[in-house]
């Protein structure tokens, strides 16, 4: 289990990237500080996916791409009943998958 989801802030140019890379996509810097990916944001898009990978026993999953305030974008599971483009959500941590080594924790979005 993880305590939180982290991205990286480039020590040279300050760009925050998520997911992490070994090299800053903006300035090619190689030194970073971890930043916690969390907060409020806006739903850019979502889907109810019925074509699921193994390890899910639900009928469908509701996935979304959210743009967090500040500009960082994340993919995660949307827990809102009536999803809409542009709706306001905030991140929480929850179990997103049952992996080979047990439950995997990650980002979920709930309506604000």
């Amino acid at each position: 289990m993880i305590a939180n989801v982290t991205g990286m802030k480039c020590n040279a140019c300050g760009t925050v990237s998520y997911p992490k890379h070994m090299v800053c996509p903006k300035c090619r810097g190689e030194r970073f500080t971890d930043v916690v990916i969390e907060g409020e944001g806006t739903v850019l898009t979502y889907t109810d996916v019925y074509a699921l990978a193994i390890e899910y026993e639900t009928r469908y999953l509701r996935l979304a791409i959210v743009e967090l305030d500040g500009g960082v974008r994340v993919t995660g599971q949307l827990l809102a009943d009536k999803p809409k483009l542009g709706m306001r959500v905030r991140t929480i941590l929850g179990i997103v998958r049952q992996g080979g080594e047990g439950a995997i924790q990650g980002l979920q979005f709930v309506a604000v």
């Binding site: 996916v49 074509a51 990978a53 996935l63 979304a64 599971q77 997103v96 990650g106």
Partner: peptide, 16 residues
């Protein structure tokens, strides 16, 4: 890890 499959990426792309 979130359950992303190719159809889900296509669905999210399509909606936008």
């Amino acid at each position: 890890i979130y359950g992303v499959t190719l159809p889900s990426l296509a669905g999210m792309f399509a909606r936008m």
